[in-house]
Write a protein that binds this DNA or RNA. Structure first.
Ligand code: FES
Ligand code: FES
Lengths: 134, 134
DNA sequence: AAAAATCGGACTATTGTTATCCGAATTAAT
DNA sequence: ATTAATTCGGATAACAATAGTCCGATTTTT
């Protein structure tokens, strides 16, 4: 398994939708209906993206969200991080490496790290803008 | 999340161990003890790798496993497939694409596929041999 | 015959993901 | 002021996937 969560998938799709409607405040309801994403789940996702600076919210009636930045400068890596997830392929590459109870028997850390860095490069170099270009 | 399963992680580490002891038949018990991997779980993993041609088993006392091929020609992508898992980042890129109930509202298939292909390239070009070079 | 190993199926425990619910706060329009 | 539409935020439930365990059968060497 090497799958992105629905939170990330929906998040990216929602950001893509917002990028394609830039200038307008878009409500969670609109995105939910247009993209057939469960409303409550999407709301949570957008709230997290707002909290972490990827989008800006406007509360109250007529409220909704707008992209905080140029789609060209928002990377998939940043979105994943903003959604409070990560893209780490094996436990031992997590920040708190000392935490891994396999550290003493681990013989794959270095080679796995090479692979990880290449994946990071891809995620750091794919932006929301690329999702807008259909 | 973009994590490899323990089955894959243990599998790769076990193959790496076998590559470093090539020529010898290695038992699941030995690998389990040396690498501190749960025996039953590892056994299952090795049996699947055997069934799908990555390693060759020898039954009975003095039995165990040997790599079926040159470590240089066994890729991570092949290992994942042999373990009957996959490395597909979003559902809609699975083989049975028609199966995805979001196909009609999906606006991310093409861009996600580009990312997927780049990841596939990495997995197809990383071999067990690279895990042996410490 | 015994011992040490693979084989294979079933099962359980644990965790992680996905989805839902509900009440509170905010804001615009009436 | 009131109402309506929205975001906010915490709790919880339903579901799925992962990880780990157990046990008996089979194979093969000694
Ligand atoms: S498995 Fe934790 S250090 Fe590699
Ligand atoms: S989400 Fe299934 S086709 Fe894209």
């Amino acid at each position: 398994m090497l799958k992105l969560s629905k939170k990330i998938e929906y998040g990216i799709q929602a950001l893509q939708y917002m990028a394609n409607n830039s200038g307008n405040v878009i409500s969670a309801k609109e995105i939910s209906e247009q993209l057939n994403i469960p409303y409550d789940f999407l709301s949570k996702t957008l709230q997290i993206l707002n909290k972490n600076g990827i989008i800006v919210s406007q509360q109250g009636i007529k409220g909704g969200y707008i992209l905080a930045r140029d789609p060209k400068s928002t990377t998939v890596a940043e979105i994943i991080k903003a959604l409070e997830e990560n893209a780490i392929i094996v436990d031992c590459l997590a920040e708190d490496e000392e935490n891994c109870d396999r550290i003493n028997v681990c013989t794959i850390k270095n080679p796995m790290n090479k692979l990880q860095e290449k994946i990071n490069y891809l995620l750091n170099n794919t932006t929301i803008a690329e999702f807008s270009e259909v």
